[in-house]
């Protein structure tokens, strides 16, 4: 019983995340696994707020707050500077949201992956621009309501995990807060694999943006996994796939009905999403 997580106390209490914030939880597991010999880069996002009001920091390690589109480049700059100083041990991690990763920051991320920069890139994916009040990003899934897609998003979520795999980076993993030991293990694994860009996409349900109770972050994230919407898996060197947690018989309906951002859906809509999820899962399954 209980999770096996070796936490070092790096992330501090007193931060400004909303009550129950999934991102705060994710940051906790990421930072506390990384330990103190690390430097983080964060772009404008909830993370930037959570990291603390000047002159205080919640993150326990040096953090540089960069621009929304530059996380990967900024992290790479730090890593290269450390290398130039003969420091080969400090982990450099970019912690960005999905807007800063899937959208505006993607160019820098893709390029850093192509250069195989020796950094860990964490995407805290809450499927939209939640810090600005819930607008659509390319991580927003089909038919989800955001304030910029009031009738529901018309296109499916961009599959950045697979795009990152296609860069043949040494490590790509999907994780979520409802499986904290799996998440912490993946951060640890990313640390072990040095010498290239390691990407972890962490699904972090936004309580406000998704319309779920303050206490429902972990549970909602598990529903995403169990319904097959967000399988947890990892890929090494662009080809070795391992499934950690896949669907367990729950349906899309089990997932969407707990969230206000989907409350406009008709049964037909849910069936369409189910078909999309089934299709994606079938395609992914072939890779394991």
């Amino acid at each position: 019983m209980g999770y096996e997580i070796n936490e070092e106390k790096v992330f501090s209490s007193g931060h400004a995340a909303c009550p129950g914030c999934s991102e705060a939880l994710a940051i906790r597991f990421v930072l506390n696994t990384l330990g103190r010999d690390a430097i983080a880069v964060v772009p404008p996002s909830c993370i930037a707020i959570i990291s603390g009001p000047q002159p205080l920091s919640s993150m326990g390690i040096p953090v540089y707050q960069t621009t929304l589109e530059a996380s990967a480049a900024s992290a790479a700059g730090i890593k290269r500077a450390l290398v130039s100083k003969g420091n080969d041990h400090t982990n450099v991690v970019a912690i960005a949201g999905d807007g800063g990763t899937y959208d505006i920051g993607f160019q820098a991320l893709s390029a850093a992956a192509e250069r195989n920069e020796d950094i860990i890139y964490i995407c805290l994916d809450n499927e939209g621009y939640m810090n600005t009040g819930s607008q659509k990003s390319s991580a927003t899934p089909s038919m989800a309501f955001t304030t910029s897609t009031p009738a529901g998003k018309l296109s499916p979520k961009k599959n950045v995990p697979e795009i990152m795999v296609a860069h043949n980076i040494p490590y790509m993993a999907t994780a979520t807060i409802g499986y904290p030991d799996d998440l912490a293990r993946k951060v640890k694994r990313a640390m072990e694999i040095k010498g290239g860009l390691r990407f972890i996409n962490i699904l972090t349900p936004c309580l406000t943006g998704w319309g779920v109770p303050d206490s429902a972050g972990p549970k909602t994230s598990r529903l995403a996994v169990q319904s097959g919407i967000y399988p947890l898996y990892e890929v090494e060197n662009g080809e070795f796939y391992t499934l950690n947690y896949g669907p367990n018989g729950l349906s899309v309906a089990d997932y969407v009905t707990t969230q206000k951002r989907y409350r406009h859906l008709s049964l037909e809509n849910i069936e369409l999403i189910q078909a999309e999820v089934d299709h994606d899962w079938a395609r992914l399954q072939k890779k394991f």
């Binding site: 501090s12 209490s13 007193g14 002159p55 205080l56 920091s57």
Partner: peptide
Amino acid sequence: WTTGSTDIL
């Protein structure tokens, strides 16, 4: 530059 931790909040 930051000078302390949020844990005083």
